[in-house]
Design a protein around this nucleic acid. Structure first.
Lengths: 218, 218
DNA sequence: TAGATTGTTAATCGATTAACAATC
DNA sequence: TAGATTGTTAATCGATTAACAATC
């Protein structure tokens, strides 16, 4: 994960950015949205840190990977910093998504408003289950898998979501990559075999519960 | 997060366990389930590492926090190691859960099979929305919030899931804690104010997508 | 015994944080 | 100027991994 830092349009540095920094950046931006919504103009690193539950040096360090956004002695302009963080995360645009798997998880993701709030929108749902194809999930129709490449190309989609059973996940991933997707969010509980240049993130909904149960029994 | 290591029933050591170790332990156990399902008896740390996508020293280190489970020169017995990892994670028992919030996310969690596979079962769904109370989600009926303390006590529930809008999340958390819950899985995108002795994990479904978009624009 | 793999130590690597000069 | 807060350096802390003795 690299940082391309720009000054006056010229790339100045390339550094490794911890993934935890990106996760926190996402949290900062969400907290800044709330501050902005509440009409707050200026925020300090320590207020932001408290709001998100981290160290204030952490906040300043995280931001410093990407530039200088504050004013010494004053703090950060909420609106500006919000825009900067969104821009850094790539959220200053819409991201159309395809979703494969129209089961429980897939259906939930279709109606999940949190995605829309951050500029993500599922534009196509696919399944190979004949009993599901043609059905509607909200405004979306479930298409057969064969249509996947077409929709990806039509909407210039970069990101796909896998919400199929473990046994089908690798095959779906292969088709996604063949169709030109560059990133995959995988809800199937399996480690996918994926080329280096394709980005994958796994989401396992039960892992966090298991961290809790570990704590409870320890 | 502490490790209580036992030998012959006597506590030997107390050490800090990285949370990442617990997450990997969860992955190991899932991979071991598949090996067991496929009739494989013995696995080495390097096979396990490859299956989960980590370093083999990592696997041995992770396991070493909890004991010695392998045989030098041979490897690990799949069934035994599976049982050990499940025991460590506290998954050698059932975990009844309460869920507050019968919106999209809540409904999805009710029908999510992945929880059941790991011994979790939602035994009560609660909401304060009159249009939702009394409705059915699968086999569950949506109860009014007032019933929450009663159900928690009746089933001796330790873990609650919050799937309500941001504005309601803190209030729900407070009620959960007052009713005796010890751990909370929070799907609301807000940092909850919680006493030290209560364990909380936040799940943000869009964060991983944002890590992907960051990568894509970088 | 020779070959293999564990469990553990010590080295390395990387992330967090304290401290402070810069500066509003 | 005095007070406040940033941006950055350097120290600390913690996690990962290479290496190897132990041992099956």
């Amino acid at each position: 994960m690299l940082s391309l830092k720009f000054e006056g349009g010229i790339q100045v540095e390339t550094r490794k950015i911890p993934e935890a920094t990106i996760t926190r950046l996402s949290q900062y931006s969400k907290y800044l949205e709330r501050l902005d919504y509440n009409g707050i103009d200026i925020v300090s690193s320590s207020e932001l840190a408290e709001g998100v539950g981290v160290n204030s040096a952490q906040v300043r360090k995280d931001l410093s990977y990407f530039g200088e956004f504050g004013t010494r002695g004053i703090g950060y302009n909420v609106k500006d910093l919000l825009n900067y963080t969104l821009k850094i995360l790539g959220l200053n645009r819409k991201w159309p998504l395809v979703l494969v798997g129209a089961g429980n998880v897939g259906q939930a993701l279709c109606s999940f408003k949190g995605f829309n709030e951050r500029g993500f929108s599922i534009v196509g749902v696919f399944d190979n289950d004949l009993t599901k194809i043609g059905k509607r999930i909200g405004k979306l129709e479930v298409f057969p898998m064969e249509k996947l490449p077409e929709v990806i190309k039509l909407h210039e989609i970069k990101i796909g979501i896998i919400a199929v059973p473990v046994r089908a996940a690798q095959e779906v991933a292969d088709l996604m990559i063949k169709s030109g997707l560059q990133a995959i969010l995988n809800f199937a509980r399996v480690t996918l075999n994926i080329p280096e240049n394709i980005k994958v993130k796994n989401v396992d909904l039960s892992v966090k519960l298991e961290i809790l149960t570990f704590d409870l029994v320890t």
